[in-house]
Design a protein around this nucleic acid. Structure first.
Lengths: 226, 226
DNA sequence: CTTTGGTTTATGTGCAGACATAATAGCGTT
DNA sequence: AACGCTATTATGTCTGCACATAAACCAAAG
C-alpha cells in the first residue's frame, strides 16, 4: 500500500542517490502516478510537501525539478513567553516596569511605517523561577486596542494580545547585540553582555498593532529540528 | 466559487472575531462542508493549513479546536552561505583557514552522541565583497564522506555537502555569544563583540554527518515573515 | 526581427465517495 | 471502583475524475 509519505520517501531517495541529480527535471505527476500505481492526487501531495520543504521547485507547465541549491526550510515555534518558561519546568512570573503613553523613537516609527503619534509603551520583565528571563519592550497602537484594557501587571501584554487582538501579518527577526544599560540592569547581567534579541512587528489588515523587542537573558537558545 | 483559501480566510475571521473563541471546539468537517457548500476535502485542506500554522489543533475523534495558546509557526529559509551573500548584492569569497584530521572537543562529541575518533576539521572564512561575513567551524565524519573529496579552498564545505551528501535529520539552534579570540580575529572585530551564532548538527539515517558552528559578523539578522 | 496571440501542457485545485485510523466514550466484567 | 473491550466518530488519506490556470512554445502578423 503506497501512501503519499511513501511516495515522498521514494522521491527523496532518488534525489539523494543522484538518480535525479540537482537541477534535473523529474517526470510529470501523471507518469509518476502510473509508475507507483497510485492516483495523481497522491503524487501531487507528496511533491507538494517536498516543494514546501525546499527540496523541489515546481512551476506550472515548466514541470518539477530538483532544487539546484537546496534551501532548507525550518519551522520555528514562537510560543507565548509564559509557555516557554513553563516548558522549561520553571515558574513563570512577570514584573511591569513601565506602562505609559509616549512618543515612540524614530526607529520604531520607521518600522511601523508611519507616525502614529503617542503610543502605549509597556516594558515588562518576564521571570523564570524568580530569575530574569526576558525583557519585553513594547509599543502598542492605542487606536486598535479593544476595551477594556487589562491590568498588564497581571497578564503580560504578550499573552493578552494573542488572545484579544487579531493579526493579519507580521515579521520577526533575530540578532545578537550587546546588552543596553537598562536591559542589563533588569536582567541582572553585566552591561554589554551578548544577548539574543527578538524583534517582532505585527499588523492588522489596515493598521499596525505593535512593535516589540525581546531581550533574552544570556544562555538563551532558539532551536528547531530540520 | 469557494476555494480552500476562501474557507481558510472565513475560518480565520471567525476565530479572530471571537465567534469561535480560543479553545473552542469548532464544527466538524462534514458540517462546515455543508455550510460552505463545498466538498469535505476542501474544508480539510483549509483546516489542515490552519493547523499547520498553529491556529488550530486537530485530533482524530476529538475534533478540531481553536488553539488555546496560539503558537505562531514561522518558517525560516536556511540558504547556502554563498546564496545568502549574493542575495545581499555582495561578491562571495572564501578563505580556507584549516583542514585537517583531529579529535573533536568533548562538546562536539556530545552533540553527535558518540565518539567517532578522528574527524575532519574544517574552518572557513566566508567573505562578502571582501569583508568577513561568517566563520564556519565544521567537524565532518570521515566515514560517511563520498570520494573524491573536493578542494575545500575552492568550494565551501557547506555547499559541497548539500550537493553530495544526503541527510536524514538534523537540528539547528541560534544563540548570541561573545566572540572568541579566533573568531574575532578572523572577522576583524573586537574580541568579545556580541555575535550571532548558528549551530547545526545533521545525521544520515544511521550515522552523524557533521556538526557545524557559524559565527556571523556583527549586524547579522535572521528574519522571516509570520 | 520583433511582437502578438493562440495552443499545449504540467501543475493547482475542485468534487464525491470510500476506507483507514486513532481516540474517546460507554459498556460490561471482575 | 478499577480494568479492559467494543462501538462510535472525527479526522486522515486515497481514488478517479474534472476543470482552472500559468507558462512555455510556436506560429502568424506587423
Amino acid at each position: 500500500m503506497a501512501g503519499w509519505e511513501d511516495i515522498r520517501a521514494e522521491v527523496l531517495s532518488r534525489i539523494r542517490s543522484k538518480a535525479w541529480p540537482l537541477g534535473t527535471l523529474i517526470p510529470g505527476e501523471e507518469a509518476l502516478a502510473q509508475e507507483f500505481g497510485v492516483a495523481r492526487a497522491t503524487v501531487n501531495r507528496a511533491l507538494s510537501e517536498l516543494a514546501r520543504s525546499g527540496v523541489l521547485e515546481r512551476k506550472r507547465k515548466a514541470g518539477t525539478r530538483v532544487a539546484a541549491l537546496p534551501v532548507r526550510k525550518a519551522t520555528l515555534d514562537i510560543p507565548v513567553i509564559r509557555a516557554e518558561v513553563e516548558a522549561r519546568g520553571a515558574v513563570y512570573g512577570l514584573r511591569l516596569l513601565r506602562c505609559e503613553m509616549d512618543a515612540p523613537p524614530l526607529p520604531v516609527q520607521a518600522r511601523l511605517g508611519q507616525d502614529l503619534g503617542q503610543m502605549l509603551h509597556i516594558e515588562t520583565l518576564h521571570l523564570a523561577s524568580g530569575r530574569g528571563f526576558v525583557v519585553e519592550d513594547r509599543w502598542l497602537n492605542p487606536a486598535i486596542l479593544p476595551n477594556p484594557l487589562p491590568d498588564f501587571a497581571a497578564i503580560s501584554a504578550n499573552e493578552w494580545l494573542v488572545a484579544h487582538v487579531s493579526f493579519a501579518s507580521g515579521d520577526i527577526s533575530f540578532a545578537a547585540e550587546a546588552a543596553s544599560n537598562s536591559a542589563a540592569a533588569a536582567l541582572g547581567i553585566p552591561q554589554g553582555s551578548a544577548v539574543f534579541v527578538t524583534e517582532r512587528c505585527t499588523w492588522a489588515p489596515d493598521a499596525p498593532i505593535t512593535w516589540v523587542r525581546l531581550v533574552h537573558a544570556p544562555g538563551y537558545r532558539l532551536s528547531t529540528v530540520l
